[in-house]
Nucleic acid binder design. Structure first.
Length: 523
RNA sequence: GCCGAUGUAGUUCAAUGGUUAGAACGAGGGACUCAUAAGCCCUAGACAGAGGUCCGAUUCCUCUCACCGGCACCA
C-alpha cells in the first residue's frame, strides 16, 4: 500500500518585527499536527516561512538605514531562533526574497494566470500618503488623515495588472457551499460566503490588483515580461505554498508528492485571502485546491488584546525560560480550543502547569518509578491480561458493563486511544490532550484502588502486575504526548525503557530507572 | 448601520423540551503515605434579564442588555 502523505503549512510571517504569542500558537498547532502525522507513519511535509516584500519593509529598513535584504535577514534570524526554542519541526523555511527557491514558483504561477487570460492591465486608484510613501486604506485613516503623518492622503492612479477574481465567483461559491474547500470552523466559511451577497442580493467578487509599479528601491519579484512592475503581495506571498515544494523549478518531485496541502493553518485575520483569492489563483492556474483551511483564534491577556500601551504583552520566551518548552507547548495544546479566541495570564499558566504537569504527569511518573525501583529493583515482568481490573467506575466506558477485565491495557486500547486518534484527526488537539490527562487520572486512580505500597507486604506477585500495568500506561502516554511534548516523551522513555519479551516468553519486561530530579518542578 | 455568533459555578468549558444541569482548575474539610504535602475521598458554588409557545424550558420563539466577529486590496 502506498504511504499516505500529509502536507501542512502555516502562513509566512511578515518580516517586520518579532514573532509573538499569536505566531507561537500557529506554529505549535501546526507542529503538533505535523509530528502526529509523522508519528502515525504518514509521509509528512511541514512548511513555514517569512513574507519579506512590500513597502512596509522598505520603509522600516530605510528607517534603520539598512538595505531591505539585511533588514529581513535579521528578522528571519529572530524567527528561526524562536522556532528552535519552540522545537518546531518544519521541513523547510521558505523566504519570499529567496530568488532561487521562491521566485521561479511565483513567476510560473503568474505566467499560468496570464496563460489563462486572467491578467489584464488597468488603473488602480488608491489613497496615497506622501509621508508613508505608500498606499493607505480607508480603514487606517483617522479623521480622513494618515494617523502617522497627520496628513490628508492624495488619491492617485497608476497602471497595474489586475487578476480576474470576478471570473471565479460562481465556482468559488459552489466550492464553499458544497464544502469541497473545507473551512474549519464552518462558521468561517459562512463569513466568506457573505462576500457573495450585497444588501441581500447576489454579488460577484471584484477583480484585484496584483502588481505595483517599481519604485526607486526595487524590492519585490519582477512581473514576467514587464520590468517596470513588481508583483503585489497576493501572487508573491501565496505562491510560497507551492514554490517551497519546487513548483517552477526543475525538480518538482515534492510538488507532485505533496500538493495539494492537506491542512493550511492560519489566523482568522487572513482567511479572506486564503479562502477566496488563493483558491481563485489555483483555479486559474489549473492546480488542485488545498483540502482544508484550519482557522484559529487570537490570544488575549486579561480579557484585553495584548498591547504595549496596556503593558500586558506576554512573550513566549518568558514561559519557555521559566517553565520549559514542553510546558508552553502542552499549555497551548490543552488549554486553547483551536477555533476560538483564548486568554493567557501568568497566573493561569502557573495554575495549569502545577495541576497538569507537576501534580499530574510528573508526579505519576515519579511515584510509579519509585515503587518499581524500591520493590522490584526496576525489573518487572508482566502481561496485559494479568493486570488487575480497575475498581473505580469510569464514566467514559460505563456502557461496557462491569469492571471485571476492565484493566489499564484494555481501557487504553478500547477507549483512550481511539478517542485520542479521532480528536487528533479532527485537529482538536485540546480534546486529544484532555483524553491523555483522563488516562493519567485513571492511573492515579488505579494506585488508589490497590494501594500497591501496602499490598507489596502481602502479595508481591499481584503488586508486580499492578506496577507493570502502570508502566504499560506510561508507555501509552509516551506515544500520545510525543507530538505535543517531544522532549518530555523522550525523558520518560529514557526512564522506563522499551519493554521487551523475556526469554521464556512469560511476558514483557520493563527495566526502569528512577528519575534523578522531578520532570516538572512545582512552581 | 447591516449580517452573524455567543452569554451556564470564582475561572475555562459540557449537556439536556421533563426525576437531584455535568467536568476540570481554583476554594474549604477528611482519611492515607508509593510520590514533586503530589494523589484519593467529601463539601460549597451556575443556566444574563423580560415576555411568549407548551402540561412542562436552561434547552424552542421574540425583545432587551452585554460581549465578540465579518462588512473587499490590511502580511
Amino acid at each position: 500500500m502506498e504511504q499516505k502523505k500529509f502536507y501542512i503549512t502555516t502562513p509566512i510571517f511578515y518580516a517586520n518585527g518579532e514573532l509573538h504569542m499569536g505566531h507561537t500558537y500557529t506554529l505549535v498547532l501546526a507542529d503538533i499536527l505535523a509530528r502526529y502525522h509523522r508519528e502515525i507513519g504518514e509521509k509528512t511535509f511541514f512548511l513555514t516561512g517569512s513574507d519579506e516584500h512590500g513597502d512596509k519593509i522598505v520603509r522600516a529598513a530605510k528607517k534603520e538605514d539598512l538595505d531591505p535584504q539585511i533588514f529581513v535577514d535579521d528578522k528571519v534570524f529572530l524567527f528561526k531562533d524562536l522556532m528552535e526554542k519552540l522545537n518546531i519541526s518544519n521541513d523547510y523555511f521558505i523566504r519570499t526574497s529567496d530568488q532561487e527557491r521562491h521566485w521561479p514558483g511565483a513567476m510560473k504561477l503568474w505566467q499560468a494566470l496570464v496563460d489563462a487570460g486572467d491578467i489584464y492591465k488597468s488603473t488602480y486608484n488608491g489613497l496615497y500618503c506622501v509621508g508613508c510613501e505608500a498606499f493607505i486604506t480607508e480603514k487606517e485613516l483617522v479623521d480622513g488623515k494618515c494617523p502617522l503623518h497627520d496628513a490628508k492622503p492624495e488619491t492617485i492612479s497608476e497602471e497595474n495588472y489586475f487578476f480576474k477574481l470576478s471570473k471565479y465567483s460562481t465556482e468559488l461559491r459552489r466550492l464553499l457551499e458544497d464544502k469541497l474547500l473545507k473551512i474549519t470552523p464552518e462558521n468561517k466559511a459562512n463569513e466568506l460566503l457573505s462576500f457573495f451577497l450585497e444588501e441581500g442580493r447576489e454579488a460577484t467578487l471584484s477583480d484585484v490588483s496584483i502588481s505595483r509599479p517599481r519604485r526607486d528601491v526595487s524590492w519585490g519579484i519582477p512581473v514576467p515580461n514587464d520590468p517596470e512592475q513588481l508583483m503585489y503581495v497576493w501572487c508573491d506571498a501565496l505562491s510560497n505554498y507551492i514554490s517551497a515544494l519546487g513548483y517552477g523549478s526543475n525538480n518538482d518531485t515534492d510538488f507532485s508528492t505533496f500538493w495539494p496541502a492537506d491542512v493550511q493553518v492560519m489566523g482568522k485575520d487572513i482567511i479572506r485571502f486564503h479562502g477566496l483569492l488563493w483558491p481563485a489563483l489555483l483555479l486559474s492556474a489549473k492546480l488542485p485546491l488545498p483540502k482544508e483551511l484550519l482557522v484559529h483564534g487570537f490570544v488575549n491577556s486579561g480579557g484585553k488584546k495584548m498591547s504595549k500601551s496596556l503593558g500586558n504583552v506576554l512573550d513566549p520566551k518568558e514561559f519557555i525560560d521559566e517553565y520549559g518548552v514542553d510546558a508552553l507547548r502542552s499549555y497551548l495544546a490543552r488549554e486553547v480550543k483551536p477555533t476560538e479566541d483564548w486568554d493567557l495570564t501568568r497566573e493561569k499558566f502557573k495554575e495549569v502547569y502545577n495541576a497538569n504537569l507537576a501534580n499530574g504527569l510528573g508526579n505519576l511518573v515519579s511515584r510509579t518509578l519509585k515503587m518499581a525501583e524500591q520493590y522490584f529493583d526496576g525489573h518487572l515482568i508482566g502481561k496485559a491480561s494479568s493486570v488487575p481490573p480497575l475498581r473505580t467506575h469510569i464514566s467514559a466506558i460505563a456502557e461496557v458493563g462491569d469492571l471485571e477485565g476492565l484493566n489499564i491495557p484494555y481501557v487504553a486500547t478500547n477507549d483512550i486511544l481511539p478517542r485520542y486518534h479521532a480528536h487528533m484527526h479532527a485537529h482538536e488537539i485540546n480534546k486529544a490532550s484532555d483524553v491523555i490527562w483522563e488516562f493519567i487520572s485513571h492511573l492515579d486512580q488505579f494506585i488508589t484502588d490497590y494501594e500497591p505500597f501496602k499490598l507489596v507486604k502481602t502479595d508481591r506477585e499481584k503488586t508486580e502486575q499492578i506496577i507493570w500495568g502502570l508502566l504499560y500506561g506510561l508507555d501509552e502516554i509516551i506515544k500520545m504526548i510525543t507530538p505535543i511534548m517531544p522532549e518530555t516523551a523522550q525523558k520518560i522513555r529514557a526512564l522506563i525503557g522499551t519493554p521487551v519479551l523475556d526469554e521464556e516468553q512469560r511476558g514483557m519486561v520493563f527495566d526502569v530507572k528512577t528519575p534523578m530530579e522531578p520532570l516538572f518542578m512545582r512552581k
